[in-house]
């Protein structure tokens, strides 16, 4: 007679366990996302009494070359694209190499693990201002040290080299730690078996390590793409978008439009276009990894 109540309770148990996250998810992700869609259909300043409905005008403006937002928006999308394309490959590949090295046994291993992770602990304000000073085209230590005369922060392509380099240095440790955890989850027996079958180091890497890391690599790639597409602080502090608005990223422009100029409808529309682009990229990313398996 005790079985039915247990089962009945059991049906709801997962929901109870999920409810705290579900509540937060709805409150801070789902509801704002839908609300944002609603905002994007209006001319929206939350403090003005009138918030006229404008239909798809905010979206149409993004595709109308004569609108005040068109050039600014697409230049910023291009900047985000360039940064993402430039920063994701090194941020996926280099940390793997670092993780492989740090996974070996050698004296001072823990120290070096900390050293590689350390920059990630610093806030974007700290690393941004520090590198801006180090990379100053005329007074910076980097040019001084190497006897160079490179406009690291004020000209292309150098500004991108700087921003990507800074970001790789800064966040490499985070990806490396995740790879390291993934490496430690690969059973030792597989390596032993591979060695017994006569596999060399490279073959062990290709046929044991890489397949074993696939789920971790999907995670690292996806998270890195999203983080790069959301780049904001580095450009804001190091280049301020210079030269002109060439390094002003989509998030920087959206923040300006919505939170400084209070055109929140237009900013919301831009966010949705950016989101759509990121969804497409993420789907492609998952497809690529799935087709390999």
């Amino acid at each position: 007679m005790t079985a039915p109540p247990v089962r009945r309770r059991g049906r709801l148990t997962p929901l109870f366990f999920l409810s705290p996250y579900l509540l937060l998810f709805c409150l801070f992700v789902a509801v704002p996302a839908v609300y944002g869609l609603y905002i994007s259909l209006h001319e929206w300043d939350y403090l003005l009494p009138g918030k006229p409905f404008v239909g798809l005008d905010n979206y149409a403006a993004l595709f109308d070359p004569d609108s005040p937002v068109h050039d600014n928006f697409w230049t910023s999308m291009k900047a985000t694209g360039v940064f993402t394309l430039g920063s994701v490959p090194p941020l996926v590949v280099l940390p793997l190499g670092v993780a492989m090295i740090l996974n070996r046994r050698f004296p001072g291993r823990t120290f070096f693990r900390a050293v590689f992770f350390l920059p990630f602990v610093l806030g974007v304000a700290v690393i941004g201002v520090m590198w801006r000073i180090l990379l100053d085209p005329n007074l910076g230590f980097v040019n001084h040290l190497f006897g160079l005369d490179i406009p690291w922060t004020t000209d292309l392509p150098w500004a991108w080299v700087s921003l990507i380099g800074i970001t790789v240095w800064w966040t490499l440790g985070f990806n490396a730690v995740i790879y390291l955890a993934g490496l430690q989850d690969i059973p030792r027996e597989l390596y032993d078996a591979a060695s017994v079958d006569g596999a060399g180091a490279w073959q062990r890497f290709v046929h044991v390590t890489l397949p074993g890391l696939r789920p971790v690599a999907v995670f690292v790639t996806t998270v890195t793409i999203l983080a790069s597409a959301n780049m904001f602080g580095q450009a804001l502090l190091v280049t301020q978008g210079a030269p002109g608005i060439e390094t002003r990223t989509a998030i920087m422009y959206i923040a300006q439009e919505g939170l400084v100029d209070y055109r929140m409808g237009s900013a919301a529309a831009m966010s949705y276009v950016l989101t759509l682009a990121l969804i497409v990229v993420s789907v492609i990313n998952f497809r690529i990894f799935r087709s390999r398996s």
């Binding site: 085209p137 005329n138 007074l139 000209d155």
Partner: peptide, 18 residues
Amino acid sequence: SPKNVGQDADVIALKNGK
């Protein structure tokens, strides 16, 4: 003026005597 003056470099240059 040099080319490519960075953020705040102008006032730093004044302080440094450049």
